[in-house]
Nucleic acid binder design. Structure first.
Lengths: 218, 218
DNA sequence: CGTACGGTTGAATTGGTTCAATCGGGGTGG
DNA sequence: CCACCCCGATTGAACCAATTCAACCGTACG
């Protein structure tokens, strides 16, 4: 929850009251094992979820069974902030690691947002930032070659983790398999592997055993 | 403007007051020739723009000079709704046809949104819908082959135009060059050309002289 | 009348996938 | 405690989709 509050405050100042009512609303927590569905595509969830601990991902499943990840979620991110307004989910949410989430009912959250316009603004802002990130992904997938696409994503993750204080020097924990990276980048895990090897050989970054080390910010 | 109001009302009911204050705020109009920049990347616009007539596109320019289109804008769409909150544009907006836009100052719009929470909700909703469309683009580019990607985009455009009442049977005007399609789809105009030809030969759709005809909804 | 832009076509090249096989480590059950 | 298994990482070779380069056509427009 601290992560969420910190993120909102980076957008807009919040009063003590704002903070405590957010904490109150999201007081319920749930736990998911790695690989479990937190929310399923097409669902109409009664609750809004925030990641407290662990990683999750937005993913869309195609008719042919292949999966596309459209966002990585870290502590402080909403699983389904949009369902405050939109009823139906166009994507599922899966736990990539063991995950703890805070939940709030739609009604209570909506009431809070109507009651406290600056919190509502901060919420809106987070969805706009998410949309901006989505745009960078789109650009990356459409126009960059695999090699630079991977480098770009790794830099993004590094930056986000550093905002959360989860970076140790140039090293951070990135609990993703090569297959999950591939799902996000629109590549085969095999090709991801080859490109990671190349990045390693060229001394730019090292990603092994779920640990990422940037050797050069390019 | 009618298009915008209609779109907002599809989300949430608006009162006569809501409608007239929207009209009042966006009363200023501007005109742009085809190919002109409506907004440039990195700008901090003082106004918020709505398309009244014509088509425009969100586009991002990469270091290597290539361009990626991240959204097509039609009457009723915001060029930069997000700048109500975010100061800086992460993308430019270009006129794809001659375009008429309505403009409102950030201050007046912000005041309106604080004053009328249901208008604010409707606004938020439109950004969420835009984000959902962005997700479908991402999925399309990452996982579909050029052939189906083009078909998918054409169907999307057809659907959106039909919401605006701009479809005539299965035919509609789509004022895009093959190059612009390529920019949106992450393909070469040459390849777009070949795939359009194939779609035509297989009798699925016909796109020529900026006119799109769907022969089969697949 | 010439020019410029968008569309069309062909041939060579390349980035990425597919299929297939192997390897290593961590967890589980006997 | 060991054998086994499963998942993720790794590597090679054949194959395919899309790009690149290059040339040519039609037409709208100054």
């Amino acid at each position: 929850m601290d992560q969420l509050i910190a993120k909102l405050q980076r957008a807009i100042a919040l009063s003590d009251d704002d903070r405590s009512s957010l904490l109150a609303i999201f007081s319920n927590t749930r736990y998911f094992k790695r690989g479990r569905d937190i929310l399923r595509e097409g669902e109409q969830p009664e609750h809004v979820h925030v990641i407290i601990d662990g990683w999750a991902a937005h993913r869309v499943t195609l008719v042919d069974g292949s999966r596309q990840t459209t966002a990585f979620l870290m502590p402080g991110d909403f699983c389904n902030g949009e369902t405050t307004l939109l009823k139906r989910l166009d994507h599922g949410v899966v736990a990539l690691t063991p995950v703890t989430i805070g939940t709030a009912t739609r009604e209570r959250l909506t009431a809070l947002l109507l009651d406290r316009p600056n919190v509502a603004q901060a919420f809106w802002q987070t969805t706009l930032v998410d949309a901006a990130v989505l745009r960078t992904w789109l650009v990356s997938i459409a126009h960059r070659k695999a090699y630079q696409r991977i480098a770009h994503l790794m830099c993004e993750l590094h930056t986000r983790l550093s905002c959360l204080g989860l970076v140790n020097g140039s090293t951070c924990a990135v609990p993703l398999t090569q297959e999950q990276l591939g799902n996000a980048l629109g590549l085969t895990s095999i090709h991801v592997n080859r490109m990671l090897k190349r990045l390693r050989n060229e001394g730019l970054m090292d990603f092994q055993k779920r640990t990422l080390t940037l050797r050069n910010v390019a």
